[in-house]
Amino acid sequence: MARRAFTHLVLMLGAAVMLAPFVIMLSISLKPPGEVFAPQFALLPTQWHAVENYTAAFTKVPLARFLLNGFFVTLCIFAAQALTALPMAYALAKLRWRGRETAFALVVLALLIPPQVPAIPLYIGLWQLGLLNTYAAIILPSTISVFGIFLMRQFFRTVPDDLIAAARMDGLSEWAIVWRIMLPTAAPAIAAFACLSFIWNWNEFFWPLIAVQEEHLMTPPLGIAFFSNAEAGTSFGPLMAAATVVTAPLALAFLLAQRAFISGVTMTGVK
């Protein structure tokens, strides 16, 4: 009993450390400038400044625009990833064709390449196409997810062959089998893949930083870095309000779909 109480104590302390930045972020976002730099930290402000801070966050920089950009970019990326990865995963898992083994070996190889490695050639290529500083520049490099292909292939292999045979007898084309049979059967895996894709691309900072300079194209991480630079550490209240707004969609999605998020991240271990 005592041991269990001790474990809880340690875990609670740990949880406090893990959650401290979130608590502080929320707390500061509610405080007026005077209280931010108070020598003694207080959780709640004595004088509420929430409206002013959040208004400032949305007016000093086009924060709403950043958020919209973020949703647009992540949505496009996931759509492209699913549209290309699912058919290939199905072809790798269930169809017999010449070159299948080679193609799969290349997927595994591509899996080993960190996403920052292709950056310089991609930048040069997009520059030559005149696509730098466009949504396309942010989206295109992420349209392929070899991780998604790999994950879905592993999952599709567990779908019984008879189910596919039955679908063929019922008159479905191979293309229709991907979307009408494999997709719903693999729904949990796809949910996990969607969560991962959302986490990665919402948070992605490295590539957008390189590909985009213009304010109206910035994704949330880029936008908030831009905000932080512009204010140079003076107005913490509005900055924390902006950070809260940027973090909120992911954190809320995580709290709502915890299982899918965690299983998705765990699936990075399916190798």
């Binding site: 972020m25 948070n203 973090t247 998020f261 991240v265």
Partner: peptide, 16 residues
């Protein structure tokens, strides 16, 4: 609680 930082935007949290 322990997983939340993984799912949050590192850049925003870095500023915190």
């Amino acid at each position: 609680a322990y997983f939340l930082p993984v799912a949050s935007t590192l850049l925003a949290m870095a500023l915190v």
